[in-house]
């Protein structure tokens, strides 16, 4: 099967042709369209945070947490940018999604947009690997179809960033037409951009998008929607995860040694059938035999230069 071949190429960090990427992207559009803005997921499931193009660490993640053949996964977004293997990481995830549609849920992060990827690396990576921006465009089109959140056993709400003052109930998220570039304000923007902190009420976010929310907002949301946990990513946590607000919210971070220099460990969170939370911590891959995150492929695409 074509997808298996692609998966095996991706795992080795090998080049995927432009046509193959296009075909993959179209297939994933079709699949993602059938999903809800907030997808329902059953336990047991493993929740994963930001990946940021660290392909080899993503492979470790699957290794340490059971693998997609045996385990269900929710990815909280930010698959691309920063690392050297954004394309491979994202394609690997959508290949898995196509191969095991029920086993993996992909949520959109604030980096899955045209505007952000132009600045933080994904666009440049594509220009470097393909010499033109087509593949970037195809991927961005898929970004528009990604879900905005997930809900596990009607009990755990998963989202990339956090809450929005425009969203009281999870049901309200359903009335968003998510197929668009992430707007600069409004519910969809907030879900992808907001951060929790020790604040009394909704506050301005230093990020310039989304809001900062505190325990009050979290408690209100948990109570209104009858859920017990908000699982989100979006912020680097040196220890891999961090629970806040009496365990009502958790940040999960899955990119070890972020940007190849932050020195942090990564974590994934497994939710058991009885909703018990188990964290798995893992370290960054050490490069060996020219394979590893930190090693950027020296074989750049063979393009002559004229200038």
């Amino acid at each position: 099967m074509q997808i298996d071949r692609t998966i095996s190429l991706l795992k080795q960090g090998k080049h995927i042709t432009e046509d193959a990427v296009y075909a993959l992207c179209l297939k994933s559009q079709e699949l993602l369209m059938t999903e809800a803005n907030v997808t329902h997921v059953d336990t047991p499931v493993t929740i994963c945070g930001d990946i940021h193009g660290q392909l080899h660490d993503l492979l470790t993640l699957f290794d340490k947490s059971g693998g997609v053949e045996k385990t269900r996964y929710v990815f909280l977004g930010d698959f691309v940018d920063r690392g050297f293997y954004s394309l491979e990481s994202f394609l690997l995830l959508i290949c898995y999604k196509l191969k095991y549609p029920d086993r993996i849920t992909l949520i959109r992060g604030n980096h899955e947009t045209r505007q952000i990827t132009k600045v933080y690396g994904f666009y440049d990576e594509i220009m470097r690997k393909y010499g033109n921006s087509n593949v970037w465009r195809y991927c961005c089109e898929v970004f528009d179809y990604l879900s905005l959140g997930a809900i596990i056993n009607n009990n755990i709400f998963c989202v990339h960033g956090g809450l929005s003052p425009d969203v009281n109930t999870i049901e309200e998220i359903r009335a968003i037409d998510r197929k668009q570039e992430v707007p600069h304000e409004g519910a969809m923007c907030d879900l992808l951009w907001s951060d929790p902190d020790d604040v009394e009420k909704w506050s301005l976010s230093p990020r310039g998008a989304g809001f900062v929310f505190g325990q009050n907002e979290v408690n209100q949301f948990l109570h209104t929607n009858k859920v017990e946990l908000i699982a989100r990513a979006h912020q680097l946590v040196m220890e891999g995860y961090k629970e806040m607000f009496d365990g009502g919210l958790v940040t999960v971070w899955s990119a070890p040694n972020y940007c190849y220099r932050c020195g942090n460990v990564a974590a994934v969170l497994r939710i058991e059938d009885d909703l018990q939370r188990n964290y798995t911590i893992f370290d960054a891959v050490q490069p060996q035999d020219g394979v590893g995150n930190a090693i950027i492929p020296t074989k750049k695409s063979q393009m002559d230069y004229f200038l």
């Binding site: 035999d289 020219g290 020296t298 074989k299 002559d304 004229f306």
Partner: peptide, 23 residues
């Protein structure tokens, strides 16, 4: 940092690298 690995920058520059092409 990667004592077991050696990159091949020179080889790349000499042989594989894009060459400066004058039309």
């Amino acid at each position: 940092e990667f004592a077991n690995v050696k990159s091949n920058h020179r080889e790349y520059l000499k042989e594989d690298a894009p060459t400066f092409k004058e039309i």
